[in-house]
Design a protein around this nucleic acid. Structure first.
Length: 268
DNA sequence: AACAATGTTCAGTC
DNA sequence: GGACTGAACATTGT
């Protein structure tokens, strides 16, 4: 589930862990914590605390402070393809989390890929069945473009036009703008009535501005409703699905290396 | 069993 | 060197 809207929600959950002293860290998953070795993150953070939770695009990180009150290493967290953040209080009750959080699925202990325990008995966990999430000390953020939320129209246009690829590939490129994933890209392009395969240079300025407005709207809507899966066209992204506006059967293909669905009638 | 999956990264090509 | 494409990554669900 994680694209910008889900990650922003996860960030607010993560923020619930700020201020409590870290007494224990389970960083034994050397795939999720690579290239660190087991124990590296634990020794860097034990005794310290998180001081603030940040996000750019789909990447989150926390500032930390050591037991002495000095600045500690940042703790980077990425949810990958399906990770979730879970923060509990001393009673094991979940805290934080915005609107619409279904999530009542069986949880196996081995799907907790990284855990921090606090002095009050509360915990922070990265829950991730697929194991494509990542936890890192001092994550490299230099490859990320500006956050997709709150961009100026001119900046959006200029950055997209820096390349020549299909418009959907440009939207998905995290160095162009950070936060758009596969579902949000399909939703936005459908809302803006633009064929995902269109090369950016074949779009007019009007097209690009319309695309930008629809991205803003799709982001706002997804954040308010609890995720990109609440998009209007998302439930019709399957074989036999029909465009909820005109009824034409949706078409499937690969664009920007990702599975893509669009309305062949309206998206031109 | 084979394939797809809301993400990133690396190798290969132009 | 940059931009772009497709496979690989680990794992689960269909």
């Amino acid at each position: 589930m994680p694209e910008l809207p889900e990650v922003e929600n996860a960030r607010t959950v993560l923020a619930e862990a700020v201020g409590r002293t870290i007494t224990d860290v389970d960083d034994r998953d050397d795939w999720v914590c690579r290239p660190h070795r087991p124990g590296d993150i634990a020794s860097a953070l034990k005794g310290g605390r998180l001081t603030r939770a940040h996000r750019i695009g789909k990447t989150m990180w926390c500032d930390t402070e050591t037991a002495d009150g000095d600045a500690g290493p940042a703790l980077g967290v990425h949810l990958g393809m399906g990770g979730r953040i879970v923060v509990t209080n001393g009673d094991g009750e979940r805290i934080g989390g915005g609107p619409a959080r279904p999530d009542r699925q069986p949880r196996k202990a081995e799907w907790d890929r990284f855990t921090m325990t606090f002095d009050d008995g509360g915990r922070f966990r990265l829950f991730d069945k697929r194991r494509l999430g990542r936890v890192r000390l001092d994550p490299d953020l230099s490859g990320l473009g500006p956050d997709a939320e709150g961009m100026e129209p001119a900046e959006f246009r200029d950055r997209l036009l820096r390349g020549t690829a299909a418009v959907k590939a440009r939207l998905l490129d995290q160095s162009v703008l950070a936060g758009v994933g596969n579902l949000l890209a399909d939703e936005t392009l459908w809302q803006a009535r633009i064929d995902p395969r269109t090369r950016v240079h074949d779009l007019t300025r009007t097209d690009l501005d319309r695309l930008h407005r629809n991205l803003d709207r799709a982001l706002e809507r997804a954040i308010a409703r609890g995720g990109v899966h609440t998009g209007e066209v998302i439930e019709h992204r399957h074989p036999g699905g029909h465009c909820p506006r005109c009824g034409t059967e949706m078409v499937h293909g690969t664009v920007g290396g990702r599975s893509t669905w669009w309305c062949p009638q309206e998206q031109t």
